[in-house]
Every structure is written in structure tokens, then in C-alpha cells.
């Protein structure tokens, strides 16, 4: 399953985000995009040393600055369930057609190349997750 699929499914779920600089943010995911930029609400920020804490109403975090995200364990099964259900629905809708593209839906999705540049303008060349 694609990491971005997991992230999209995590909307409104609580999560922990650690940034490259070691700061952590605990909050609920509001939104995310293909660069893994995210917006969180009701956020508890902790500094890298773990001794200072702040509360934020909401914040926006650049994907390129994220080290990792911790999400609820139940999310994995929930997403797999949904993908299976979608696949079953697709299969029955298409009848008995052998559909290579459909079967690759579980992994391939839309993203063949890099970060799903859907013909938009060059977004400043950032957000590739390559260095800061």
C-alpha cells in the first residue's frame, strides 16, 4: 500500500509527527497533499530535548521537513479493508473482464512516476523530499 494512501486515510485521526530537527507534533490530521505537506489541529508541540511543550490551535508542516509519522495501528487494517472493498466493487462493476490495470490498482494507483505532477505548473521545484 502506498504511504500517501495511508496518509490520506488518516484524515481526522490523531498522529505524531517528528521533524528532522527532532521536534514532535501530536495532533489530528486535517489535510495532506502529494508532497506530504500536512495541516494538523489541536497540536501539542514538544521541542527536540523533550522538556518544553506548547499547544497550537493548528499548524502547517512542510513534507520535506518530516522525519516520520506515527499513526494509529488500526489504520492499516482499515485502509486495506477499504482497498479490498473498492477492488471488489470495481471487479463486479466491470463484470468478468480480465483487467490488468484494475488488478494493479492495489499498488500502482495513479502514481507511476515521481510525485504525481498532474500537468500543473512547476511548483517551485520543492517538496521532492530531497534535502532541505
Amino acid at each position: 500500500m502506498l504511504p500517501l494512501s495511508l496518509l490520506n486515510a488518516a484524515q481526522n485521526k490523531p498522529m505524531l509527527v517528528e521533524l528532522k530537527n527532532g521536534e514532535t507534533f501530536n495532533g489530528h490530521l486535517v489535510n495532506c497533499d502529494n508532497f506530504m505537506n500536512i495541516t494538523l489541529r489541536e497540536v501539542y508541540q514538544t521541542n527536540a530535548d523533550g522538556d518544553k511543550f506548547w499547544k497550537l490551535k493548528e499548524c502547517y508542516i512542510r513534507g520535506s521537513t518530516i522525519k516520520y509519522l506515527r499513526v494509529p495501528d488500526t489504520l492499516l487494517d482499515a485502509v486495506k479493508e477499504e482497498q479490498n472493498r473498492a477492488r471488489e466493487a470495481g471487479r463486479s462493476a466491470r463484470g468478468a473482464h480480465v483487467s490488468g490495470a484494475g488488478n494493479r490498482g492495489g499498488r500502482g494507483m495513479l502514481q507511476r512516476g515521481r510525485g504525481a505532477m498532474r500537468g500543473g505548473p512547476i511548483r517551485g521545484g520543492r517538496g521532492r523530499g530531497r534535502g532541505m
Partner: peptide, 11 residues
């Protein structure tokens, strides 16, 4: 134990 993790590739 950490649970379900999404780790950025560049890390």
C-alpha cells in the same frame, strides 16, 4: 514498540 509508522524516504 512503536506501532504503525510512515517513514520518509529521504531519512
Amino acid at each position: 514498540p512503536l506501532g504503525l509508522y510512515l517513514v520518509k524516504g529521504d531519512q
